[in-house]
Computed example of a mutant assay.
Amino acid sequence: MERANGSGEGTPEPVWTVAANVVAWRRCGVGGQELRPGTKFFKGGAKVYVAKVYWGPGGDRVTVAGRERHTGRWIVIDTATRHLYGFRPKLVHTPRVLERLREERYARGFTSAEYAVDASATLERYARQYRAATSAGSPHPDRCLCHACLTGEAAYTEGSGGPAAAG
């Protein structure tokens, strides 16, 4: 798993993971009328690496490695898929990320680049569905800053895959 370099120290072998970003703002509270920046552990826009996906309950939780909001330390934590966006396959070379994944027993990442591509597409679809289901039927506040409103996701209905019909 480790390669030897000229200095005699081993460097971790790169692994395929799925990279994503934390949403800038998320809806929460009664009826989704409250907005909060990022998550409790990550700033909005922070890059995280998905180490494990819980496919059984529908991919609503993932284990990610990223820099913690307040201290900047690398942490590995479970988070909701709906709080992430921009899923993409990534070959990780960063020694600190690989070290944290190894400490948490996720050192092998995804088995191949093809699997990481498939997983990233599936996770993006799940994240959109879970964001749409959060406070479904509740109107967004005026000048809403949630991820769905900022990116235009709110204009799409869950089942159609296209823009919602104008009322």
Results as ranks from 00 to 15, higher is better:
M1W: 00
R3H: 02
A4T: 07
A4Q: 05
E9K: 12
G10E: 10
G10T: 13
P12Q: 13
P12K: 13
P14T: 05
W16P: 09
W16C: 10
W16Y: 08
T17W: 07
A19R: 01
A20R: 03
A20P: 07
N21A: 12
V22Y: 00
G29D: 03
G31D: 07
G31S: 04
Q33G: 12
Q33D: 06
R36S: 09
R36C: 06
K40E: 14
K40I: 06
K40G: 15
F41L: 14
F41A: 14
F41K: 14
K43N: 13
A46H: 09
K47V: 15
Y49W: 08
Y49R: 06
V50G: 02
A51E: 04
W55E: 13
G58T: 08
G59Y: 03
D60K: 10
T63A: 13
A65N: 05
R67I: 14
G72E: 07
I75H: 03
V76K: 10
I77D: 15
T79S: 04
T79F: 00
T79I: 13
A80L: 15
R82Q: 11
R82M: 10
H83W: 02
Y85I: 02
Y85P: 05
F87W: 00
F87T: 01
T94Y: 03
R96N: 10
V97R: 00
V97C: 13
V97H: 00
L98R: 02
E104C: 15
R105W: 00
A107H: 08
A107P: 03
R108V: 11
R108F: 06
S112Y: 05
A113S: 11
A116R: 03
V117L: 12
D118V: 03
A119W: 00
S120L: 08
S120D: 01
L123F: 00
L123W: 01
E124I: 03
A127H: 00
A132K: 15
A133N: 15
A133L: 14
A136N: 06
A136Y: 07
P139L: 05
R143G: 12
R143W: 02
C144V: 07
C144G: 11
C144A: 10
L145V: 07
C146P: 13
C146V: 08
C146I: 01
A148K: 01
A148T: 02
A148S: 02
L150Q: 11
T151I: 01
T157Y: 01
E158V: 14
G161Q: 09
A164D: 11
A166M: 13
A166K: 10
G167A: 12
